[in-house]
Nucleic acid binder design. Structure first.
Length: 780
DNA sequence: TCCACTTACACATTTGAATCGT
DNA sequence: AACGATTCAAATGTGTAAGTGG
């Protein structure tokens, strides 16, 4: 899964490509996720439990190896925090809508000479649907069936570590849509659901091979609820003040409330006049003027506007014309929004022109300002009902390690002093992803490749030209998506159909807690605790489970799992394997919860289903939930949860990369039949691990045993059943790499090897880029 | 009637081509 | 002819309001 094969030769025809990358059609979008039994259970669970955030990785763990040192900083975290304190809402439209704020990231710790691919995926935080009531978001009912997973690949990918570290990276090209039939490659989301963006840094030894290591980052403050129209006026206000494109809606803008009202009045007046005109002398403009509304500031504008129109009216009045007013209003800028806006702007510019270097000075200043603002506002927000109450927020970055058990009070703390950078981000290792992946069965993973910015002089250099992919499995291209599939992780999507076998709420809870809860958190750790002691440690938020993932070499071969006992992560990969993916892909009907549970760690212990369940859930949901926990201020209220929220520091902007080397071989890992997560857990033959392990993104990178050794704690911990000690290297055989398959014309600006990714067969070409969709396809 | 969604609208920004001057 | 700066128009992004459908 991790690795993807690319076919430089573009030998694949559209049809084939479609087969390889599109699974949407295969998976019914609207099929109920939860079987009755499971659904009930899901409803019973506290929202928080459903979506626990991934535990942040401790710095120590992260720094074990150079790779571990990889860090990602959310540069506009202050802006995000402002939004999260209110309850971030993201508009989704049929045509696709960009995210605002955008993800403005700074990477460090990468090997300058190695190439990496940056991916963005957005996974559900929980299995709930939300409604804005009483000034806050309330979970109401179960989430809709999970949609096909799509991944947005940063236009610069693949690029060297030096490239990524030399500038601020932005995913502003990514668009969100609610069109389940979207053909543009946009990320498809359900409205009124809560999501968590995740960024994955995948080592690409060459174009054909992904995966020397994977680092996944989750910034809790970037969690949001999708809407088709803003529900919270505060969010609207923030967006208007922060987004340059909404400048016109500011008070001083021409599209401000005042101006709009004025226009409205004018229109009415015009219409009235028009009607009158029919009955009156067409040439008599005086009437029109008289009728025009006259009051206050509007008067001036109206008068002016009407003036030009008058002549026309006589000869053909056009009600619609009102342009003149605009000039009258002086533009003022204002406030705090501007600062954010400025930062955002810079961000955008930077991204667009990859060649352009960011201005640290100005940005810093902006950030600082923003932060200050945030700080002040943030605490208050927290105190008040956070918009994202239900989910416990994992602390991001650095804050976690140092403070294993943070007080809720921490949230309240503004953390003013902490610069975004300082916060270690939550790390979600591929495992986390995989965990979320419980959905794998249903979802497809598709990759979106925006066209690189014209300026991307900096564009990464071509990786390998040779089509020869190391992986013999060129044929296996299907698998790739699976491994990578980001979404699979979350809960919702993947629910095992088996109602009876479905994990109980308890299971979910357990799983969630273990993974999501912060170390030291008061979480109900009970069951969860079993997962791994480490969780409690600062490292708890890391997606350790995932890490181990992969190991088994067998995977590469397509054999059945090599290591069931292995840490879940590996399993995941296995389960997801391209071919196997089919198996991994639970029938659409599978309830989300089910999905979650099974995935996580089920695999590890077929023998200990119960234990596994918890893990599974964690993995699956952990990532998503983590963010929630992290937001103290967040406005997303959860229904009262039985579990205490883990204290996360909102400030944590940095996600510590979990350096996981994963590699899951798709084929190998997957059992012939996709088993339900639920069933899988129970079924010895198909270790739950696999399922759980299937992280959305497990790049196929060859799994490195040494990696596992470096993160032994993670692996074993994940699976309760596993011994705490470091996993046996043998257990985690190196992953086989999965080459990506290139499908079509390469984008001119891209290196030859990667061009294929860009231009997509599906005809996803946007003005700003083309998209490639990749979805896991079950292989039978 | 309520709610969620779609669409049209007006404005602002971005982008690229065209134009002009050196 | 080449290069850089400026201008213009189209494309795109944005939130709002009205309309639609369940």
């Amino acid at each position: 899964m991790l690795s993807m094969e690319m076919f430089p030769g573009l030998t694949l025809g559209p049809q084939r490509i479609g087969d390889c990358f599109y699974r949407e059609r295969e998976a019914p979008v609207h099929i109920p996720l939860f079987p009755p039994a499971c659904e009930a259970a899901a409803k019973a669970l506290p929202p928080r439990l459903l979506a626990p955030p991934p535990a942040p990785v401790s710095n120590e763990a992260a720094t074990t190896t150079p790779k571990d040192e990889v860090k990602m900083e959310l540069e506009n975290s202050s802006l995000w925090k402002q939004f999260s304190s209110v309850g971030t809402e993201m508009i989704i439209t049929k045509k696709g809508r960009r995210m605002f704020p955008g993800l403005k990231l700074k990477l460090s710790g990468l090997n300058p000479s190695l190439r990496y691919i940056l991916l963005l995926d957005i996974v559900p935080v929980d299995n709930s649907r939300y409604r804005f009531q009483g000034g806050g978001w309330q979970a109401v009912g179960a989430a809709e069936a999970r949609l096909p997973d799509r991944v947005f690949i940063h236009p610069d990918s693949p690029a060297t570590g030096a490239h990524w570290q030399s500038r601020t990276m932005s995913f502003h090209y990514a668009k969100l849509t609610n069109n389940t039939l979207d053909t543009q490659g946009h990320i498809i989301l359900h409205s009124l659901h809560r999501y968590q963006p995740r960024i994955h840094v995948i080592e690409a030894r060459d174009v054909l091979r992904w995966g020397g290591g994977q680092h996944s980052f989750v910034f809790p403050e970037t969690q949001f609820i999708t809407v088709t129209a803003y529900q919270n006026s505060k969010i609207t206000e923030l967006k208007i003040n922060s987004n340059p494109f909404a400048k016109g809606f500011r008070e001083d803008g021409m599209n401000s409330k005042k101006q709009r009202d004025a226009r409205q009045k004018r229109k009415i007046a015009v219409l009235t006049e028009t009607l009158d005109i029919v009955n009156c002398d067409p040439c008599d403009s005086t009437e029109l003027l008289q009728q025009a509304p006259v009051t206050g500031a509007d008067l001036q504008a109206l008068a002016l506007a009407s003036l030009p129109a008058l002549p026309e009216t006589s000869c053909g009045f056009r009600p619609g014309d009102t342009s003149y007013q605009d000039t009258l209003v002086p533009e003022q800028s204002l406030d705090l929004g501007q600062e954010f806006m400025a930062s955002q702007m810079s961000d955008i510019s930077i991204t667009l022109a990859s060649g352009i270097q960011e201005l640290p000075g100005s940005e810093r200043a902006n950030n600082t300002m923003a932060e200050a603002a945030y700080t002040s506002s943030f605490p208050a927000a927290q105190a008040s009902s956070s918009s994202f109450p239900s989910a416990p927020l994992p602390q991001s970055s650095s804050s976690f390690p140092s403070h294993p058990a943070s007080d809720p009070s921490d949230r309240s703390d503004p953390q003013p002093s902490i610069p975004p950078i300082n916060y270690p981000s939550l790390l979600s290792s591929s495992p986390a992803l995989s965990s979320t992946s419980n959905t794998p069965s249903l979802q497809q993973t598709s990759f979106t490749f925006p066209t690189p910015p014209p300026s991307s002089s900096t564009s990464p250099q071509p990786l390998l030209s040779s089509s020869s992919s190391p992986s013999s499995s060129s044929n296996n291209y299907h698998a790739v998506p699976d491994t990578i599939s980001p979404h699979t992780s979350t809960d919702a999507s993947f629910h095992a159909p088996s109602s009876t076998t479905c994990p109980s709420d308890l299971q979910d809870q357990v799983a969630v807690h273990s993974l999501l809860t912060q170390p030291g958190q008061q979480l109900q750790a009970g069951p969860l605790a079993t997962d791994s002691p480490s969780d409690q440690s600062s490292a708890a938020f890391m997606y350790q489970n995932i890490v181990p993932t992969n190991p088994s070499p067998t995977l590469s071969t397509a054999q059945p799992f090599p290591c069931q006992n292995q840490p879940p992560a590996p399993v995941l990969s296995c389960s997801l394997p391209m071919h196997a993916s089919s198996t991994s892909f639970a029938p659409p009907s599978i309830p989300p919860q089910m999905q979650n549970l099974p995935f996580s760690h089920v695999s590890p212990s077929p023998a200990h289903p119960a234990l596994h369940l918890p893990n599974l859930t964690h993995q699956a949901q952990a990532p998503s939930l983590a963010p929630a926990t992290a937001f103290p201020p967040s406005s997303f209220p959860y229904p009262p949860s039985t579990l205490p929220h883990p204290p996360f520091q909102p400030s944590s902007c940095l996600a510590v990369a979990s350096s996981f080397q994963q590699s899951v071989t798709p084929a190998a890992t997957l059992p012939p039949l996709a088993h339900n997560p639920c069933t899988s857990s129970s079924t010895p033959s198909y270790p739950a691990v696999e399922i759980g392990a299937v992280p959305p993104f497990n790049p196929a990178p060859p799994y490195r045993p040494e990696m596992v050794r470096h993160h032994p704690s993670l692996l074993p911990q994940l699976d309760p059943s596993l011994p705490p000690s470091a996993p046996n290297p043998a257990l985690y055989p190196t992953f086989k790499s999965y080459p990506l398959r290139l499908c079509q014309d390469p984008h001119p600006s891209l290196s030859i090897p990667f061009r294929h990714l860009y231009r997509q067969q599906h005809g996803h070409s946007l003005s700003q880029g083309s998209y490639l969709e990749m979805s896991t396809r079950p292989m039978f």
